[in-house]
């Protein structure tokens, strides 16, 4: 059995009550921290949305940190602890209400608006969705930290549009090859690694000649 213990109560929370006829037991004392200016955004541990609820769970003496998005948090809170077969009760938790109570403190950087769609970083933070592709340029400094947190990376290494200019296509090819090279080395496939290194070198030479 898992015993969920939640610490750090910051916001008064309306406890969900059991529905008639359901097997659901009200959740034990509940605690969480809402995103404030000091918290870094994390990715939901159950899906890929941005987590808005952070829970410390103690399982058999082991401490687990859980970061959940709004919809997964609803599921989590309404789930009878560690019982998969039981009915899933539809207890409503007023998240929007809770979010309002804990607005992050005013920070001038958070108020800068995207000239193209008008969204501010603060707005993005509360909604978890950006407004337009430009935002990746406007909020680049903030996004670096966020992306590093979510993906553990800040540089794309994958497919690129065929329409991309030739120079950036080569750039991508290089990134991809370096990536493959790392993997080959890790897997001790030295033959493949040597082949990749040659390819990288010739590509780099070609790029230097062009500039």
């Amino acid at each position: 059995m898992t015993a969920a213990v939640y610490t750090e109560v910051k916001t008064p929370f309306r406890r969900p009550t059991a529905r008639k006829g359901s097997l659901f037991q009200p959740v034990p004392v509940f605690a969480h921290s809402w995103p404030g200016s000091s918290t870094v955004m994390k990715k939901c541990s159950r899906c890929s949305k941005i987590a808005t609820l952070h829970i410390t769970e103690i399982n058999e003496g082991k401490v687990d940190e859980l970061h959940l998005c709004e919809s997964c948090a609803k599921m989590y809170l309404n789930q009878p602890p560690s019982n998969l077969e039981e009915e899933f009760p539809a207890v409503e938790v007023e998240f929007a209400e809770l979010m309002e109570e804990d607005e992050p403190e005013d920070n001038p950087a958070e108020e800068i608006a995207c000239p193209s769609c008008g969204i501010t970083y603060k707005e993005f933070r509360s909604k978890g969705r950006l407004g337009c592709p430009q935002d990746y340029i406007v909020f680049k400094p903030q996004l670096f930290g966020l992306l590093d947190n979510i993906h553990n990376a800040t540089q794309h290494k994958g497919k690129y549009p065929k329409r991309a200019p030739e120079a950036s296509q080569k750039q991508f090819e290089l990134i991809k090859l370096r990536n493959e090279l790392n993997e080959a080395v890790q897997q001790e496939d030295y033959e493949e690694a040597a082949r990749l290194r040659d390819k990288i070198n010739s590509l780099q030479e070609g790029m230097q000649e062009e500039t």
């Binding site: 978890g128 969705r129 592709p133 990746y136 993906h151 794309h156 497919k159 690129y160 549009p161 329409r163």
Partner: peptide
């Protein structure tokens, strides 16, 4: 024309999907 950046790849409404 897709929204794409050399740095971040394919740009998405939620940063959790950006890149590929």
């Amino acid at each position: 024309t897709y929204a794409f950046s050399d740095q971040f790849g394919y740009l998405t409404a939620c940063p959790t999907n950006v890149g590929t």
